[in-house]
Design a binder for these strands. Sequence first.
DNA 1: TATGAATGAGATTTCATTCAT
DNA 2: AATGAATGAAATCTCATTCAT
Lengths: 192, 192, 192, 192
Amino acid sequence: MAKLQKSKDKREALVKATICLVNNDGFHAAPMSKIAKMANISPATIYLFFEGKQDLVNQVYIEVKASFSDYAFETFTDDMDVEAGFELIWKRIAHFKLKEREEAMFLAQCDNTPMIDEPSRKEGIKHLQPLLDLWHRGKEEGVLKPVSDYLLYAYSINPLSFLMLAQHRGECVITEKTIIEAYQAAWDSIKL
Amino acid sequence: MAKLQKSKDKREALVKATICLVNNDGFHAAPMSKIAKMANISPATIYLFFEGKQDLVNQVYIEVKASFSDYAFETFTDDMDVEAGFELIWKRIAHFKLKEREEAMFLAQCDNTPMIDEPSRKEGIKHLQPLLDLWHRGKEEGVLKPVSDYLLYAYSINPLSFLMLAQHRGECVITEKTIIEAYQAAWDSIKL
Amino acid sequence: MAKLQKSKDKREALVKATICLVNNDGFHAAPMSKIAKMANISPATIYLFFEGKQDLVNQVYIEVKASFSDYAFETFTDDMDVEAGFELIWKRIAHFKLKEREEAMFLAQCDNTPMIDEPSRKEGIKHLQPLLDLWHRGKEEGVLKPVSDYLLYAYSINPLSFLMLAQHRGECVITEKTIIEAYQAAWDSIKL
Amino acid sequence: MAKLQKSKDKREALVKATICLVNNDGFHAAPMSKIAKMANISPATIYLFFEGKQDLVNQVYIEVKASFSDYAFETFTDDMDVEAGFELIWKRIAHFKLKEREEAMFLAQCDNTPMIDEPSRKEGIKHLQPLLDLWHRGKEEGVLKPVSDYLLYAYSINPLSFLMLAQHRGECVITEKTIIEAYQAAWDSIKL
DNA sequence: TATGAATGAGATTTCATTCAT
DNA sequence: AATGAATGAAATCTCATTCAT
């Protein structure tokens, strides 16, 4: 049990290190040796947990995406009305991005880069289903614009990633007020 | 003259090859040797035009960003009223992204990655000034929401990049109808 | 322990190979790959011990210089009178140059070339202090000419390097008789 | 004639550039392209004057050595008595090294490095014959120690190179007084 | 004669991965 | 399970040299 714990700790450290290095230097400047050093383990040990670098990144992506989705939908139930449900989910997402900046940044980079392979990307997206269902209902009820989910996502969810990145580069600061304004913009863009 | 032309051609080929390879494989999987091969020149020749790989990518970014901005603002004059001006610029941007998919993709990846260094990023952003001026006017006139430019950009411009990427991955198709819907979402998100 | 030993052996082999190749071909014709091959290791392994080629050469220089100085001053104590002390040191130096031809040759090349960077050169020279102290005393006692240490070194110590090089090129042979004659010349040049 | 002059100028510029760069960076850091740039000609043009880099360096060596020897022996005639003749030559050599620092430095580096090939080295040494003849006479007359020419050279001539190098590195300054002291040391080391 | 452009060959260095322990 | 050492393969970059003009 203690051993198993230690093993989990190592894996956890690896995941953290990967996120941190990829965020700051990009995939191409995050060598395995650096990741290992930052996680305080030997490079060779990485291969006990992951098949290789691609697998490491893929798995980190999937896990972070899952943790992101879990957070986003934790308080949501599908009996909520569409606007309330959307606001709830949106705010949870925004909160996650503020609270878990490192993980959010990592996802943003993964989503705009050929860094993750297709199967893993698909796997990561699956968790968004509750939101898609909600949107489906919203369109049926005439609350949301009758446009594709990609469009809804592009306008109501994805902009948060852009704001995150800008903040990370020190170009702007995201405050509580920003969040309120952003939600308004998000909702305005998709509501009918 | 003929020589100069040939030299320009080589540079041009290099730029094209860089865009293409980075789009498909990412910065880390676009080695100089591959870029050279695709441009049909010797790897050594790259260094006649660029100081190194970082410089190559930086310069390509700046050039593509400039060509993007030139296109976006070509028909815009600052005597237009805010909504008309915005629609004009927005549609030019959308058109550019449809027409020059490769270049647009490249920009999307650069803008979401620590691939480009800070000075080059700054250089690339400078060209957006006319849009920022228009927004400034829009806020003064009470046509636009009184929020930061980053927010306006995140909600009205950036979503197009997301749609581009999704299309590139084969997840969705962008049609004329999509563009109309997208414009509506964009304008709804920022108009007062 | 066995492992550590092996690691030290590799480093040792690298140092030996560097000295040998630089002696015969010069810095510019001693590529890392050749050095690695001669030391029977992979080129990549060099970088486990040294930061790069410049660091490799610098460190080899410092080590050889230290080993040279250690030998030169091993039997010297500062209670010896000046002439006896000088003769002792001089002969040790001469002996070192005859015995450790490779190392002596290497030092000669380093000392006459912009091959070693300034800090390392300074580091290497530090070890000569006992000789400088002896000379200081010699000048005070009126045994040595009241001239700068550089002059004393140039005339009493450095000529040995020239003879070494000439012998290495096959131009002359250094015998015991040569050493005796050389010492006489050295002493004559600096004694008052 | 004008053309011939221009051609000679180019060659001259090449020689100067080679000396300068090798002095400051060493043979290994004096690429043909840098030499060409410093001489204000195209790299290709070097090959109109020299067969390649090795040939360039060899020829520069031979020329500088010849110019050095010419200067050294210009005022010497073999009817002088040994001490006077030696003093004359020695002082001319010292003067050359002070006056033509760049060229002297270059020779010092060539003489301690596997930079020059054997035939060229031999060629360069030939010019020293008058000094060797003088020494031969000096030994016969019992004025000089009966030791090999290499020893005489090592102790009476070569030390000047060491002083030059030390001065170039900024470690010491050679003044008129230094020259007088150095001559004394030189003569003391070889006179019987 | 002179050159700017171009390059093949090779130098240095990096890195994902493996292996002996 | 865990690792430090080691490395093959490949990446970036340099340079002496050549070629078309």
